[in-house]
């Protein structure tokens, strides 16, 4: 159980985390989702006491992290891969971590086995790939067999087999009644792993809900329409609380009413409709809608790329 109350972190004039409050419950995988720079890592560092909050407080299993007698047995955290001395071997790193809590060598060998580090355990960490570094970080997080597991971007740099393994691991830990809190900026990963989502953007919580309700809540009907007189069609629909987007002279996207209603209005107004496609909202879209105003570093299409894209027929949408 992780509880944050009005947790804030400011660096000078910049507010990285802005009075966030949330609770991460045991027994399920909670995803912490947000664009780069949204404050995910800062929040996680505050949970384990590496950064001091500028305001508010956060507790893990009822106490601030630093007040636990055996913190590694309460909370296991992968904060960033390679929080490890590059000249030391993976085995010695884990042994040094374990020694602080009197964790026996047998447990060190267990987590090495569990994370598949066996063949490289005696090699220096400096030569590890990003994926092996992640596995070592996860091994360190599991050392104390903790009740709460915090993983910051755990699938970064992992191969597909590793990604699947992390997914199984997270679900397995949650099914044992542990609190599992993992961050990602990848929506698709969260859709597969998490039961509950906390979405953060520019340091604020945008959504905190079961994953299904986030999909449903944002999933207002959206329909793509090709018609000869789209303006007339929109004019007739104006009273029904719709929003629309004109993509091409004869191509529009209408949000707020379903396809049947559009067809009825078009028939009545004698507007020729030659495409009527209901668009299903994916979690990805829901996420984009939630965070589009909250993105810290927005990317823009390169001008020539945009030109090229316009010449290509629009890809078929609708999943």
């Amino acid at each position: 159980m992780i509880e944050a109350q009005a947790l804030s972190k400011r660096y000078g004039a910049k507010t990285a985390v802005d009075a966030v409050s949330f609770t991460v419950h045991p027994g399920k995988v909670t995803g912490f989702l947000g664009p780069n720079g949204a404050g995910k890592s800062t929040t996680m560092r505050m949970i384990v006491g590496l950064d001091n909050p500028s305001g508010g407080r956060v507790t893990v299993n009822g106490k601030p992290y630093a007040q636990h007698r055996a913190p590694l047995r309460e909370v296991g955290a992968l904060l960033d891969a390679k929080a490890v001395h590059t000249k030391r071997s993976a085995y010695n790193h884990l042994r040094a971590m374990a020694a602080t809590h009197g964790i026996p060598d047998s447990r060190v060998r267990d987590v090495i086995e569990l994370t598949g580090l066996g063949p490289v355990a005696k090699k220096r960490v400096g030569g590890f790939s990003l994926g092996m570094g992640q596995r070592l970080g996860i091994a360190a997080a599991l050392l104390g067999d903790p009740h709460t597991v915090i993983l910051d971007e755990p699938v970064n740099g992992l191969d597909p087999e590793g990604v699947q393994w992390v997914r199984h691991l997270a679900k397995g830990l949650a099914s044992e009644g542990r609190t599992v809190f993992l961050s990602s900026h990848l929506m698709s990963e969260m859709a597969l792993t998490a039961d509950h989502l906390i979405v953060i953007g520019r340091g604020r919580i945008i959504a905190d809900a079961p994953i299904q309700s986030i999909i449903d809540g944002q999933g207002r009907a959206r329909v793509r329409v090709r018609a000869d007189r789209p303006q007339d069609l929109l004019g007739s629909l104006a009273g029904e609380g719709v929003s629309s987007q004109i993509l091409e002279p004869e191509l529009i996207e209408i949000t707020g009413v379903d396809a049947r209603r559009i067809a009825e209005v078009a028939l009545r107004e004698r507007v020729l409709v030659y495409e009527l496609t209901p668009l299903q909202v994916s979690l990805e879209d829901a996420y984009m809608q939630l965070t589009q105003t909250e993105v810290e570093y927005q990317s823009h299409d390169l001008p020539n790329v945009q030109d090229a894209a316009e010449q290509v027929p629009a890809p078929v949408e609708g999943r």
Binding site: T100, G102, L114, D145
Partner: peptide, 20 residues
């Protein structure tokens, strides 16, 4: 990667082991 089933992993106990 060995996928050890949950049941085979060391069982968790509250405030089990030694502290710092």
């Amino acid at each position: 990667t060995s996928q050890v089933p949950a049941a085979q992993r060391p069982r968790r106990q509250r405030e089990s082991g030694p502290g710092v």
